[in-house]
């Protein structure tokens, strides 16, 4: 009963083609030596050099990286706490609301999240004078808020599969809950935390809508710059940028996949050896 029907095989072929052909075309045209972006005119790297000379894009990329690094780290911290709170403590006041607050950012349309955050920043400036302007700081806060929800979900599902007796054993041996978390839980969920951090980092790098709402003058992130460029049509230097990003991500995924595969094989071998 393992054989696959022709229908399923065909559907999979076209499905994956649908997912990857646009990306492939995007990459191919980044090497196009033509200023009319969609007509092939021979191989060239001119758009890559144009890209690296574009100070606006370089600056925006650096800003985006900075925001992503800070927000991913803080989101991982807060999200891990939230995941712990949801799995390792019993009942506390407002648990239901807490659960709802964790789950809501995952599905909330970005326009609403962005708008609401902007309004809270403006209102808070009116009331207590903070934050005095919008920019990098407000983008970081916004990104922490929505990506910590993703972190919390990842950590929570990892903790749910964790062998409870490990924690009970540590507690039984006299460790304080804080020490249990530090000595037992965190090392065990470290891979999940890394995955969560990477996700938070990517979400932050990727975000356009929320950042557009909460940023101020002079703090344009990379997606904001790209968006304003491509609104007017196809521009080959964006293809070049996309190719670079896809290459980095692709390499990262392949390497991490390979490392995980190796680890899996090693575990299998260890289990099989008596």
């Amino acid at each position: 009963m393992k054989q696959r029907s022709y229908f399923v095989t065909t559907a999979m072929f076209f499905g994956y083609a649908f997912l990857y052909v646009p990306i492939a075309v995007l990459v191919i045209y980044s090497f196009n030596d033509s200023s009319i972006p969609t007509v092939w005119n021979g191989f060239s790297l001119r758009w890559y050099s144009a890209l690296f000379e574009n100070e606006q894009i370089i600056n925006a990329a650096l800003l985006s990286l900075k925001i992503a690094l800070i927000s991913a780290t803080l989101a991982t911290f807060l999200g891990t706490l939230a995941g712990l709170a949801l799995t390792q403590t019993n009942t506390f006041k407002g648990r239901l609301l807490f659960t709802g607050l964790i789950a809501a950012p995952l599905v909330m349309p970005e326009v609403i999240t962005g708008l609401s955050l902007l309004l809270v920043f403006i209102s808070s400036e009116q009331l207590i004078g903070w934050p005095d302007s919008r920019g990098t700081l407000t983008i970081i806060i916004a990104h922490i808020t929505f990506s910590m929800a993703f972190v919390a979900i990842i950590i929570q599902s990892r903790l749910a599969t964790l062998d409870k007796s490990l924690i009970e054993a540590a507690t039984d041996l006299g460790a304080h809950p804080f020490r249990v978390t530090l000595d037992i839980t965190l090392p065990l969920i470290a891979p999940a935390m890394l995955a969560a951090w990477l996700l938070a980092f990517t979400l932050s790098l990727d975000d356009l809508v929320i950042a557009s709402f909460v940023s101020g003058p002079g703090s344009s992130t990379l997606p904001m710059v790209i968006f304003s460029k491509v609104r007017l049509g196809v521009t080959p230097d964006v293809n070049a940028l996309a190719t670079i990003i896809i290459t980095i991500v692709g390499l990262g995924v392949v390497i991490s996949g390979w490392v995980m595969y190796r680890q899996e094989q090693r575990t299998i071998r260890r289990v099989q050896q008596p």
């Binding site: 995007l26 790209i226 196809v234 995924v253």
Partner: peptide, 28 residues
Amino acid sequence: LMLVILPFWTSFLLRVYAWMGMLSTHGL
């Protein structure tokens, strides 16, 4: 499964942009 998730990790904006190239008057 990895091939399904992979586009997730690349930019959403750039994936939408890819379709501009596909669909434009002189596109693929």
